[in-house]
Design a protein around this nucleic acid. Structure first.
Length: 501
DNA sequence: GCTGCCGGGGC
DNA sequence: GCCCCGGCAGC
C-alpha cells in the first residue's frame, strides 16, 4: 500500500522531478532517490525549481530570481546516444541519453551500470566529455554546487508519511480545479467565439482531446512517455505550444474526448462524478452536404476555412465567414447502441486527421477531430443538409424519459411527436403524444449563426388535455390503502408510468 | 363522484 | 430535484 501511495504521489506530484529506478527496485515502482547526507531543507530545495509556463522547471536559485525565467540561450541540447554524467544515489554515473525533451527539460538517461532508466532534469545532466564532474569548467559550479544541484532533482521527495494523504488531496483538488478551468461546461458561449483569446483556444484541445496524460513532459507524442511511467504530470499549458497540440492530436484517445479513464491524474481514483447525463458541445459544419461534426471550435473553423471557403480568400473575411458555417450542437454523452448501429460507415471509418501546420497561427495547429462517437449518430447527418440537434430532455424524473436528440433541419417547419421519437428510443413512453412543433423564421440559407439550440418539450399543452388512458392505474390496482405501492408518478398525481396505455 | 394528471408551489 | 396538491377534465 505504501508503494502504491508512493506511486500515486509520484504521478501526481507537481513539484518537480522524480527519479525512478525500475530495474534496480522491485516492480519498477517509482521510488524517491535521495542523496545520502544531503537532506536539504525542503523550502530551500524547492527554491531550486520554478515551474515555468510551459510546464517545465527551471533552476532559479542560481539563476537568480530577478533573472527572466526563460530558457537560457545556452541550454544544452542533448541528443540521443550522447554520453552524459548524472548524479545517482549521490554518485556520478555515466549514462546514455535516450531522449531529451527540451520543453520540459527532462532527459531520459539510460544507466548501463545500474541497468536502469531514469529521468533527470537537463541541468542535472552533464555531457560526459565536456564537463567531468571532478573538473568543473571555468565559471562552472563547484563540486558543492554540483552536489546541491543534484539534490534539486530530488527535492520533491521528502519523506511524507503522515501528511501524504493530505498533500495528495491538495494535489487532486488542484488538478480538479485546473481541469475545471478548461472544462467544456464553462466554455464561453459561442457568441464570443470569434474573440477567443489564443490562450483560450490553446486550452481547447487539451480539454477536448480528453487526454491530459503527459500534458507537460510528453510533448513528443509517444516517444517520451513510452515504457516507464516516469513522466511527471504537469499542469495544463496556459499558452499552447505547437508540439503540445500535436501531442494531443496524436493521442490514441483522440476519438473520445471525454474518456478520462486514461488520465493519469485520476487513475485509481473513484470515478469522480461520471459523465452521466453530461452534455457535450460539439460543432457541426453547416455547409451543404457536409455536416461534419467536430468537437472544437477551431477545428470546425479550420474545416470550414480549408474545406469550403478555401485558402484564397482574404484571411479576415474568411475568419468572419467561417463563423456562419458551423453551429453548435449539444451531444448527450450516453451509450446509444441503436444510434451506433444506424451510424453510417462514413462516420465509423473516418480517419483521424492531423494537420501539422507549423507556420500557421496557433489555433490552426489544433487537431481536427472527426467525431467518432456513436452516440452522436452523426452518420445520419454527415451527408445531409445543415441540421441541428434538438436536445429534448424530460424535466421530471418520474417521467423517465431519457433525453433524445432528434436531428431536424432548423429551417424547415418541423413537427415532431413523441411517438416518432419512440421509434428510435423504445424506452420512451408512447403515452406522450404532445407535438413538438416550431418553425424557423430564418431564410433557408446556411448562414446560421452559431447558436446553442436547445429545445425542451413545450410545456404548454396545445389545448387538448391528454385523453384518459384505458389501462388500469396504480390507484385502481393497488387501491388507496396501498398508495406506497403506486408508481411515483401516480403518487404525485402525475401520468402513471407503470401502467401505460 | 371517481379518476387521471397538469400545472404550480413548497422545500 | 423531490414531493405534494389544487383543480380541471373525462368517464
Amino acid at each position: 500500500m505504501a508503494s502504491v501511495l508512493s506511486r500515486r504521489l509520484g504521478k501526481r506530484s507537481l513539484l518537480g522531478t522524480r527519479v525512478s529506478a525500475p530495474g534496480a527496485l522491485a516492480d519498477g515502482v517509482l521510488v524517491a532517490t535521495q542523496v545520502p547526507g544531503l537532506q536539504t531543507d525542503l523550502g530551500q530545495a524547492s527554491a531550486h525549481t520554478v515551474p515555468r509556463e510551459d510546464g517545465s522547471c527551471a533552476p532559479s536559485a542560481e539563476e537568480s530570481s530577478q533573472a527572466p525565467r526563460f530558457p537560457s540561450p545556452g541550454r544544452q541540447q542533448l541528443c540521443a546516444g550522447q554520453q552524459v554524467l548524472v548524479t545517482y544515489n549521490g554518485q556520478e554515473r555515466a549514462g546514455l541519453v535516450e531522449q531529451h525533451n527540451p520543453l520540459s527539460d527532462k532527459v531520459k538517461v539510460l544507466l548501463p551500470e545500474q541497468g536502469l532508466q531514469a529521468c533527470w532534469r537537463v541541468q542535472d545532466v552533464r555531457p560526459a566529455p565536456l564537463q567531468p564532474p571532478t573538473l568543473p569548467a571555468a565559471g562552472g559550479p563547484s563540486p558543492a554546487e554540483a552536489l546541491q544541484r543534484s539534490v534539486s532533482s530530488n527535492i520533491d521527495v521528502p519523506k511524507r508519511k503522515a501528511d501524504a494523504a493530505v498533500e495528495m488531496d491538495e494535489m487532486v483538488a488542484a488538478m480538479v480545479l485546473t481541469s475545471l478551468s478548461c472544462s467544456p461546461v464553462v466554455q464561453s458561449p459561442p457568441a464570443g467565439e470569434s474573440g477567443i483569446p489564443p490562450s483560450r483556444a490553446a486550452c481547447d484541445p487539451w480539454k477536448e482531446s480528453g487526454d491530459v496524460s503527459d500534458s507537460g513532459s510528453s510533448t513528443t507524442s509517444g516517444h517520451w512517455s513510452g515504457g516507464s511511467e516516469i513522466s511527471t504530470p504537469s499542469p495544463p499549458h496556459p499558452a499552447g505550444s505547437p508540439k503540445y497540440s500535436s501531442e494531443a492530436l496524436s493521442s490514441p484517445q483522440a476519438d473520445d474526448g471525454f474518456e478520462t479513464d486514461s488520465d493519469p491524474f485520476l487513475l485509481d481514483e473513484p470515478a469522480p462524478r461520471k459523465r452521466k447525463n453530461s452534455v457535450k458541445v460539439m460543432y457541426k459544419c453547416l455547409w451543404p452536404s457536409c455536416g461534419k461534426v467536430l468537437r472544437s471550435i477551431v477545428g470546425i473553423k479550420r474545416h470550414v476555412k480549408t474545406q469550403h471557403l478555401g485558402d484564397s480568400a482574404d484571411s479576415d473575411q474568411r475568419k468572419r465567414e467561417e463563423d456562419f458555417y458551423y453551429t453548435e450542437v449539444q451531444v448527450k454523452e450516453e451509450p446509444a447502441p441503436e444510434a451506433a448501429a444506424a451510424a453510417s460507415p462514413t462516420s465509423a471509418s473516418t480517419p483521424i486527421i492531423i494537420h501539422q501546420q507549423a507556420l500557421a497561427k496557433p489555433e490552426a495547429l489544433l487537431v481536427e477531430q472527426p467525431v467518432l462517437e456513436p452516440a452522436l449518430a452523426s452518420g445520419a447527418l454527415s451527408q445531409s443538409a445543415p441540421s441541428s440537434f434538438w436536445h429534448i430532455q424530460a424535466d421530471h424524473a418520474y417521467q423517465a424519459l431519457p433525453s433524445i436528440q432528434i436531428p431536424v433541419s432548423p429551417h424547415i417547419f418541423t413537427s415532431i411527436s413523441w411517438a416518432t421519437a419512440t421509434s428510435t428510443l423504445p424506452s420512451l413512453s408512447p403515452v406522450r403524444s404532445r407535438s413538438l412543433s416550431f418553425s424557423e423564421p430564418q431564410p433557408p440559407t446556411p448562414m446560421l449563426k452559431s447558436h446553442l439550440i436547445v429545445a425542451s418539450p413545450p410545456r404548454v399543452s396545445i389545448g387538448t388535455r391528454k385523453v384518459r388512458g384505458e389501462a388500469k392505474k396504480c390507484r385502481k390496482v393497488y387501491g388507496i390503502e396501498h398508495r406506497d405501492q403506486w408508481c411515483t408518478a401516480c403518487r404525485w398525481k402525475k401520468a402513471c408510468q407503470r401502467f401505460l396505455d
